[in-house]
Design a protein around this nucleic acid. Structure first.
Lengths: 240, 240
DNA sequence: CGAAAATTTGAGTAACGTCAACTCAAGTGG
DNA sequence: CCACTTGAGTTGACGTTACTCAAATTTTCG
């Protein structure tokens, strides 16, 4: 099922930008439907920390990640930030039936995103049972992910949260080479995602490394040494 | 829009069991659609802590709360528990397109629930655009609630979480009399919902009480004295 | 290569958890 | 009706985890 072949022509840095093709294969999702809007898709490039849209903006488009990583987050007055999710190549975001976006979307690193007019998508939905179905299962999966995340942040210790995060990323990361997992986001992003501080992330990683559970070849990659131990820490419930 | 009139005939204790009528009015939701399945709805009563269904059970029905309060939660091996949501009268749960329930549903106190066969609901969905729409907005709202909850548990202190919880309950509780808010669930439930301990809940409530923000006439009610202070603690983002 | 930012490590502290005792409310049976 | 039982809620003392502040180190990018 080759998808979005025409969208991706520009060569991208393999380090930070991973293409759709590797992720999309085998998973139905919404991608196939969005391809019907290919003509109307705007290809947008963002630099590190640039906003795709801000919380409160009019929700005029829906988006699909072509390459890179986008974080969905909310800022609060006094500098605190909550990262609710990371969008990887192939992931669709900005859907929700709201008129204004309830969260901000920012590029973690250099990223490419395709924007489709929301109106056209809604038109596409009408009298389109397969799309409606896929849309429902999209929400359903998203909800399950969010509830899992809620579980992680309410019940688990710092070490356990980091373990859960690595497991989660290893399951999402189709480009994982061997047992190497890419972490395109920075430590602060991970911290705000897990409800911890940068320092605690570092210490937890160091602790897992010392225990022989993982190796950390560089700041943006993790090697899984003892997956069983990692799963045990993450606590059985690692279902996606 | 009078809804589900025939479902409720048994008189219920006003203390713990609140009826659909007060909540359903004015909100479209899925209730109107479920009434088409009225004939097939089974009325079920549960005692305190009884399970409506357990995590892993076959998802053969969907449910609507008629009276009482249901908690949706997950248990983990070592005794920890995460409460992901509380369902109040009128709320629909058990939807999600999964074959097995990914969470447990338990009665917080005496509760009445109406169960509808999932198969019939799916049939009802087919070629039913308005229902499909309401279903989508149901998911959308649920997702927004869960993300808000994620924000609360990752970013806020104990006091702030309790403040957020009270605000949330005051917004959901249509039966709030004046500024009295009912808390049908116990302290342990609140603790597992907010990712804290029972003791911390008590201390936070005591702290808010001492600050003159709330009053606590009894363990299952809270009076809002200084709503502005409470909102400030909960942090602007109290959108439902 | 050099400046700026991110990551990592260390030391001290605050917030929340743990353990334990006590109080209170509700239900039960005599 | 009341003593008794039981479980939930509350409060206090203490311990632990994770946060804060600070500095060293590495990486990134102009």
């Amino acid at each position: 099922m080759s998808v979005a072949a025409s969208v991706l022509r520009t060569p991208v840095q393999p380090q930070f930008e991973r293409t759709i093709a590797t992720r999309e294969s085998g998973r139905p999702g919404l991608g196939a439907h969005l391809d019907h809007l290919r003509e109307h898709g705007m290809r947008l490039r963002y630099r590190r920390n640039e906003a795709v849209f801000a919380c409160g903006d009019a929700a005029a488009h829906i988006y699909r990640v072509a390459a890179g990583c986008i974080r969905l987050c909310r800022h609060v007055g006094d500098g605190r930030r909550s990262v609710s999710d990371f969008m990887l190549p192939g992931d669709v975001f900005g859907l929700g039936g709201f008129r204004l976006f309830p969260y901000t979307a920012e590029a973690v690193g250099p990223a490419t995103v395709v924007a489709y007019p929301a109106v056209l998508f809604e038109q596409l939905c009408e009298d389109n049972a397969p799309l409606q179905n896929d849309l429902l299962s999209h929400y359903s999966r998203l909800l399950a992910r969010t509830q899992q995340q809620l579980f992680v942040t309410t019940c688990q210790t710092a070490r356990e949260r980091v373990a859960s995060f690595i497991i989660m990323m290893s399951q999402r990361d189709q480009l994982a080479f061997g047992d190497r997992v890419d972490l395109p986001m920075g430590r602060q992003d991970i911290a705000d995602f897990l409800g911890l501080t940068v320092e605690t992330i570092c210490r937890s990683l160091a602790s897992l490394k010392k225990a022989g559970t993982i190796a950390v070849p560089n700041a943006h990659q993790v090697s899984l040494i003892d997956v069983e131990a990692l799963r045990a820490l993450a606590g059985g419930s690692t279902a996606q």
